[in-house]
Design a protein around this nucleic acid. Structure first.
Length: 261
DNA sequence: TATGCCGGGTG
DNA sequence: CACCCGGCATA
């Protein structure tokens, strides 16, 4: 099982021999991608797969090396979840506004939707300051298990109650993980909602989160990060001296139990 | 910079 | 379990 998966993605650039081609694009490879691909998301569990998404001409040399394959197995010990192959994916634009699940097929459409419905802009003027960009996200939808109109009446399986629309807001998360994608390897969102149902969206690309101007002056939203209450805790109250007066949790650098928020 | 504390140790 | 601490997010 795992072997087959590995086999399928073993078109890897991991070559042991000194590559004869000096400009082999993959030669700069793994270590670099490794360090770069970690985006500061909360789960430090990245998994990469070469979902050869639409790049048929990967310049990997035609070598079939059993050893390197084995080496790879140990290298990426993390469970290589057998992922579904790309079949019919379609980019769509999903509104991320709270409790709004609107999905449109064009960016202009979703922009207008956000502008008029959520931002309360004048509908007749097409003026856009780009703010809408923060409230929608480009997604890829698997069309197999999904009929065209995925609007509101989800007739899907009874096991998966549609996850409550509580997303940590598009901004601030997933900074630019999608960029370090050197033709072939893809960084993937870990296990958020992918594991149970291979049905709906595959991954969200929020790479347009930084657009010229403000990230700071947004309408302050349910802050995506926990604000960390500013009550004084044992450390602050008693000070480093008198440490023995701290609650045990504080002494162990755990969440304070005496002065909770 | 200091503080709060999560995650991951050790005994 | 109790206990400690590296390291990170946040103020």
């Amino acid at each position: 099982m795992a072997a087959t998966v590995l086999t399928s993605l073993s078109t890897s650039p991991m070559v042991l021999q000194p590559s004869s081609a000096p400009t082999e694009p993959a030669a700069r490879g793994w270590k670099e991608v490794l360090s770069a691909s970690y985006s500061s998301s909360t789960s430090g569990n990245w998994s990469w797969d070469n979902s050869d998404q639409s790049v048929p001409s990967t310049p990997s040399p035609p070598l079939s090396n059993e050893n390197s394959k084995n080496f790879l197995t140990h290298f990426m010990f993390d469970d290589p979840i057998p992922r579904k192959r790309k079949n019919s994916m379609k980019v769509m634009f999903k509104c991320l506004w709270k409790n709004c699940e609107k999905v449109l097929s064009t960016s202009s459409g979703i922009q207008r939707h956000i502008r008029t419905v959520h931002l309360g802009r004048n509908s007749d003027s097409d003026y856009s300051d780009g703010e809408e960009d923060f409230y929608y996200s480009e997604i890829e939808v698997n069309m197999d298990s999904l009929t065209e109109g995925l609007s509101s009446l989800t007739p899907t399986s009874p096991t998966t109650v549609a996850p409550p629309p509580v997303f940590p807001s598009p901004l601030f998360d997933v900074p630019h993980s999608a960029h370090i994608n050197v033709n072939g390897s893809q960084s993937h969102a870990p296990t958020l909602l992918s594991q149970s149902a291979p049905s709906t969206l595959c991954h969200i690309r929020t790479d347009h989160a930084y657009q010229g101007l403000n990230v700071l002056t947004l309408p302050s939203y349910p802050s995506p990060r926990k604000p960390r209450g500013d009550a004084k805790k044992c450390r602050k109250v008693y000070g480093m001296e008198k440490k023995d007066m701290w609650c045990t949790a504080c002494r162990w650098k755990k969440a304070c139990q005496r002065f909770t928020d």
